[in-house]
Write a protein that binds this DNA or RNA. Sequence first.
DNA 1: CTGAAAGCGCTAACAA
DNA 2: TTGTTAGCGCTTTCAG
Lengths: 338, 338
Amino acid sequence: MTTARERPTLEAVARRAGVSRATVSRVVNGSTTVAEPIQEAVRRAVQELGYVPNLAARSLVTQRTDSIALVLPETATRVFSDDQFFPGIIRGVSQELEAADKQLVLMIAGSAASHARVERYATGRHVDGVMFASVHGADPLPSTLVRSGIPVVCSGRPMGQVSVPVPYVDVDHIGGVAKAVRHLLELGRRRIATIAGPQDMIAGIDRLAGYRDELRDSGRRSLIAVGDFTRESGALAMRQLLDDDPDLDAVFVASDLMAHGALRTLREAGRRVPEDVAVVGFDDIEMARYTDPPLTTVRQPIQEMGREMTRQLLRMAAGEDIGHAVVLPTELVLRESA
Amino acid sequence: MTTARERPTLEAVARRAGVSRATVSRVVNGSTTVAEPIQEAVRRAVQELGYVPNLAARSLVTQRTDSIALVLPETATRVFSDDQFFPGIIRGVSQELEAADKQLVLMIAGSAASHARVERYATGRHVDGVMFASVHGADPLPSTLVRSGIPVVCSGRPMGQVSVPVPYVDVDHIGGVAKAVRHLLELGRRRIATIAGPQDMIAGIDRLAGYRDELRDSGRRSLIAVGDFTRESGALAMRQLLDDDPDLDAVFVASDLMAHGALRTLREAGRRVPEDVAVVGFDDIEMARYTDPPLTTVRQPIQEMGREMTRQLLRMAAGEDIGHAVVLPTELVLRESA
DNA sequence: CTGAAAGCGCTAACAA
DNA sequence: TTGTTAGCGCTTTCAG
C-alpha cells in the first residue's frame, strides 16, 4: 500500500484555520482582499496539513488547466535524430511558456494509436491548447482539433485541403532558397542543380519551388534530383546529378544533412569544392561548420519559430482573435563551400 | 473569437437520446449492461452532438487521469544530445503505456522553475504517476513526490540519503564492468587503467567501483583518470593516463563516447589498438560499431529499463505494493578493440 | 472583508 | 436493465 494518507482538501484547511472554504480559496489563489492575519492563519494551516489544490477540481470550474501540449508527430527515433529541429522548437516553446507560467506537456505521436490518444486528451480539455512541431503531409489532426474548438498552432505550413484554416508559423523557405541561388549566380555559376527534399513535406516542396522560380527568372534550365533529407540520399542524388550533367558547376541542396552526403560524392568523383562545384545547403545545422569545406547554407530561426508559435497560442487561449499565419525570415550564411 | 460553440455535456446527450445521464455514462464507458437499442440511440446522440467527455470532471470522481508523466531532468539541449539514452527509455516507456492505453506526457525539467512546476503538476494529480528518466545527484524531487503519495519510479538508482526509499530500475553497472575487466585479464593484460565518469552520477560512481573491486580481487593496482562522459574528456583523460604510466596495456572506459576520444589519443600517441593497448567501452551506442577499430563494449538494455520502469509504475498506480528495486543484466559485446 | 450556497460535468452506489 | 441521488474538490457570485 502506498501509504497515501488522505489528501487534505480545502475544507480541511478551512476547518483548521477556522475560516470558510471561500476564504482559503482566496488566499491560495493570491487574492488581496483578505485580511493579513487571516491570510497568515490560512497559510499556516496549508503548511501544516501539506495541502495541495486538486487540479481536476479547479479546472472543472475554471475551464482552464494552465498547461499546453506540444505534439511531436514522429516516432521517438526520428524525434531524436541528428538534426536540431525539435530541440530548437522545444527550447523556444519552453521559454515563452515559462514566462507565462504554463506547463508544457510533450506528446510523442508517431503511431496511429497515439494519434488517437492525443486527440482524446486534447478534446477532453486536458490542455488549454495544442501546438504541432512539424506537420506531416495532410495529417488531419490539427484541423480536427481546430474544429472541436481548441486553440491550435502549427510550426510549418500544413498541407492539404483547407476546409478549416489552421494557424501556423513557418520560415520563409522560398526567400531563403532565392538568396542561395542568386548567390550562386552572382558567383558566376552557369549550371546550377538542386537536390530536393521529400515532396510530401512543405519544407521539401517549398524549397524546390524556390529553386525553380529563381532559375526560371534567370532563364536557366533546372536540374533536379530528389532525396529524403538523409545523408545517404544526398550522396546518391549527387551521384545521379553528376551522371545527368557532368558539367554542372553548382548545387543547391535542400538540407545540410543531404549536402554532407553530396560533399562526399563530389570528393569521390574528384570534384573540388568550391572550385569545380559550389555547394549551398539549408538548415545551418551545427555540423555545417565542420564539413570539409564548411558549408554555405541558409539559416532558419527555429527557436524563434517555437517562441512565435507559443505567443500565438497563448493569445488564442486568452480568447483573442489572431492572424492566421506568420512567416519568419531566413538568412544566407556564407562559408567556404560557395 | 474561437467560435467554440458550447460543448455538449452528458446531460445534453441524455436529453437527446431520451435516457438518463447514468445510462449515457455507461455507454460511453463501454459497460455491457445496456440494452442494444439504447446503446444505439446513445451513440447516435453522441455522434450528432459531437460529445466528448470532460476529463477533469471524470478524474475528479474517479481519482484517475489515465496519464503518466515521464520527467526528463535535463535541458532540451542535453536531452537531444548524441547518445541514445533518452530515446531508448522513451521507446520502452511508450510501448508499455500504449499497451495499457495510458497517455504519456513528457516533461522537460532542466531549470529550477520547471522543476517546481513539475512538482505542482504531479502533486496536483494531473497524472497518476511519475517516472524519472535518469536522476541527478541528490535531486530531491523524486522523494518529495513519493512523500506526497504519488507513485514514482526512477531509472537509475537515486543517490543521496534514503529518508524515503524511491523505487527504481537500473542496470547492473558493476557486473558489466566486472565482465569487461575480467575479459581484459583473460586476454593477458597486466596493466589495466580506467577512464571513469563523473562522480555525481550513479553510472559514473558504480562503473568506477566495479573497476576497483575487480582489480583489487586480482591483486593489481588501479590507474584512474576521470572524465565527464564526453568525447573530449575521454581524449584528455587518455593522454593523462599515458603520461602516468606509459606501460599500460589496457583501458576500461566508462562510456563509449569517452572511449572514442581515447582511441583518438591512442592513435596520436602511436599506440596500436588492440595490439599495444586494448580498449573496452560502456553503453554500446550506435557509433561503437563504426569506430576504428570497432569497440568492445558493455551493452545495457536501455529500452528494457524503460519498459520495466513502466510496468512497476503501473502496478503501483493500481495500488499494488511492489518491490523496491530492479536491476537488469548487462552484457559484454566483443569487437576488435579488445 | 468574509461566508453561504450553487454549481462545474461526471461516476457510482443504491433503488426500482 | 435503467434511473435517482449523492457527491468528487474547487471557484465564484451574492449577501451580509
